[in-house]
């Protein structure tokens, strides 16, 4: 047993982190609000780094890695608050034409939902509908939706879709179940990234901002907020990393239990840390200019993806 990242894993993490720092810096990310969260050029760069094909066999043009590694990649994408249907296109790679290469932007939506809200519709080429029966592929131009005027997260635009076309069946119930489990773990990884990034942002500010003649991090009230944030992030990290490994190798645990727990814990950590990061910033935290709100808003979005906290808590309760 060794819970440390091995050399390859550490290199992958480092590689994605520096890719994001270079190609999805905050300024770029912020500018994507004008194009439904997606820039086609950058999208292909994501594909080229292997984000979408990460878990496809090399023979099929993928990278041939597992969920263990995908978790590390999605944590970094979450940390950088990279917008767009990255999780959907990752799940769809190999199954939907063009998803792997990034030539087509593929989204997903879950059913049943009342109402059905589709993310990034204006940027999509195709949409995978996930329900108990399986996976259904719908061409984006066959979907008509009513745009939501003010989405909570401006980088995740939404359309209310009253009638989803039936689409083409591309997977059965087991595929849908697998997507739900893997999707929950990868959304949890993004939430973990958010939880970690807010610890760093808040800590840096607490060291630099002075009140009463000293850095605000001197005050125990501020220290304790940040220590709680770190605790939430580290607990979430352990749960999410373990879930990735468990889904790859069910001999080490119950994949369902690991996925439900990870999504629940990481969702709480992302949201609570987003709020705490704003609180540490005082008035600055309530401005558009400071990045804290981007993390919090995305955390709210991701918490609803593949089951919100209540859904996973209920699922856990059924397993204990």
């Amino acid at each position: 047993m060794d819970f440390d990242l091995n050399e390859d894993e550490a290199a992958l993490q480092e590689g994605v982190r520096s890719f994001c720092a270079g190609r999805f810096d905050m300024e770029t990310v912020r500018s994507l609000a004008d194009s439904a969260g997606v820039d086609r050029g950058r999208w292909r760069e994501l594909a080229d780094t292997g984000v979408f094909g990460l878990r496809l066999p090399e023979a099929d043009g993928g990278v041939g890695l597992g969920l263990t590694e995908a978790v590390l990649v999605f944590e970094e994408l979450g940390r950088a608050v990279v917008p767009g249907p990255i999780l959907a296109s990752h799940l769809a790679a190999g199954l939907v034409d063009g998803a792997l290469s990034g030539d087509r932007v593929v989204g997903l939506v879950e059913r049943p939902a009342h109402p059905v809200l589709v993310e990034h519709l204006d940027a999509l080429d195709a949409l995978v509908v996930v329900d108990d029966e399986g996976l259904h592929l719908v061409e984006a131009d066959a979907i008509s939706g009513e745009p939501v005027g003010r989405p909570l997260d401006p980088w995740t635009p939404l359309h209310v879709v009253a009638d989803l076309p039936a689409g083409q069946v591309i997977g059965g119930p087991e595929d849908a179940a697998r997507w739900r489990l893997e999707g929950a773990v990868l959304a949890a990884a993004q939430l973990l990234g958010i939880a970690g990034a807010t610890v760093e942002l808040g800590t840096a500010y607490a060291k630099e901002r002075e009140q009463f003649g000293k850095p605000i991090g001197t005050f125990q009230a501020v220290k304790h907020i940040l220590a709680d944030m770190l605790t939430r992030a580290e607990v979430a990290r352990a749960a999410v990393y373990a879930a990735g490994v468990t889904l790859d190798d069910p001999s080490v645990g119950d994949p369902a239990r690991a996925a439900h727990g990870a999504k629940l814990i990481a969702g709480e950590a992302g949201i609570a840390n987003g709020k705490a990061c704003i609180q540490v910033h005082g008035g600055m935290g309530f401005t558009w200019e400071v990045d804290a709100h981007l993390y919090l808003k995305r955390a709210f979005v991701l918490d609803t993806v593949f089951g919100s906290g209540d859904v996973h808590a209920e699922a856990m309760a059924a397993l204990v």
Binding site: P115, V148, P151, L152, T156, L158, V160, S308
Partner: peptide, 15 residues
Amino acid sequence: ERVFERAGLALDDVA
């Protein structure tokens, strides 16, 4: 957010 779930992602009323 818990009550509205996905609709909790919109500042404008949906449906």
